[in-house]
């Protein structure tokens, strides 16, 4: 079985801070991480590999430093890594990103299972997975919380708002994983050592044989008109006094607003 796992390197948004003076985002020095859902997808691929002797290829698109995330993936058990790195990809929206990733997957070829994280923490769109599945004309199962592989088939638990569905699909098939699918893992020392013996291939748009008229900022259907920091709410009122006074004041506030649900 051949598995391709798509990962993204993202800024650790828990560490993102706003400059209190300018109200803008401080990007310098913000550490980057492998997107958490993508990491769960990779760990799942490694679990499948242990059972089926699968080959795992990790694929990412990003600037040269995204190689770090791919090295981490190799240390966690991936067999080979490819980084799509070209100025032509810059500014791609999800449609254009799917064209780049999907194009590269066609070039890699010979895949049985494509694993993605459900969404990336910097954009939260959850779109690229399904878009790639459509591009490759293969079935998709999103929000996977459990994957069982059988011969030429997968059985997946798909999380819903009020439970889950059990869905079966033939392979090839694309699955997006949520964090509930497995426990996060850390690379072993042995894994890290091996990762540095493996090569991270860097592909340009031409090497990936991607249709250049469907990638990048200018070919993206959506464009950012402007971005702004959300207006700060005026300073709220601080309640002061003894604990008793404060508790009473809160309860009075609730009564005033007719939020007297239970009392």
């Amino acid at each position: 079985m051949n598995i391709i796992v798509c990962i993204k390197q993202v800024p650790d948004t828990n560490e993102v801070k706003i400059d209190p003076k300018t109200g803008t985002l401080k990007r310098e020095g913000v550490p980057t991480i492998m997107n958490p859902d993508d990491k769960h997808a990779l760990i799942e691929a490694v679990k499948i590999k242990k059972k089926t002797k699968a080959q795992i290829t990790v694929l990412s698109m990003g600037p040269p430093q995204a190689e770090e995330a791919l090295r981490e993936a190799l240390a966690l058990g991936a067999d080979q890594a490819i980084l799509l790195c070209d100025r032509a990809f810059a500014g791609s929206d999800t449609w254009a990103t799917a064209n780049a990733i999907g194009g590269a997957i066609k070039t890699i070829g010979n895949y049985d299972l494509l694993l993605f994280g459900r969404q990336a923490i910097d954009g939260d769109t959850a779109q690229v997975g399904p878009q790639v599945a459509e591009l490759l004309n293969i079935p998709q199962i999103t929000y996977a919380q459990k994957i069982e592989t059988e011969k030429n088939k997968v059985k997946v638990e798909r999380q819903m708002e009020d439970g889950y569905e059990i869905i079966e699909s033939n392979i090839p098939c694309l699955i997006t994983c949520i964090s509930e699918i497995n426990e996060t893992e850390y690379p072993t020392l042995k894994g890290i050592r091996q990762a540095y013996k493996k090569e991270v291939k860097v592909w340009s748009a031409d090497q990936a044989k991607v249709d250049k008229s469907k990638i990048g900022l200018l070919n993206s259907p959506t464009s950012v008109k402007k971005s702004f920091t959300p207006p700060a709410k005026g300073q709220g009122q601080t309640l002061k006094g003894s604990i008793k006074d404060i508790a009473k004041e809160i309860i009075d506030l609730l009564k005033e607003r007719e939020l007297t649900g239970g009392f």
């Binding site: 999800t94 449609w95 939260d124 959850a126 779109q127 690229v128 399904p130 459509e134 999103t142 959506t222």
Partner: peptide
């Protein structure tokens, strides 16, 4: 979130999440 991106790609149009 499963349906809309699949449709966006089939229709070759943008989708904002």
């Amino acid at each position: 979130r499963d349906l809309a991106p699949r449709l966006a790609q089939r229709l070759n149009t943008g989708l904002t999440a």
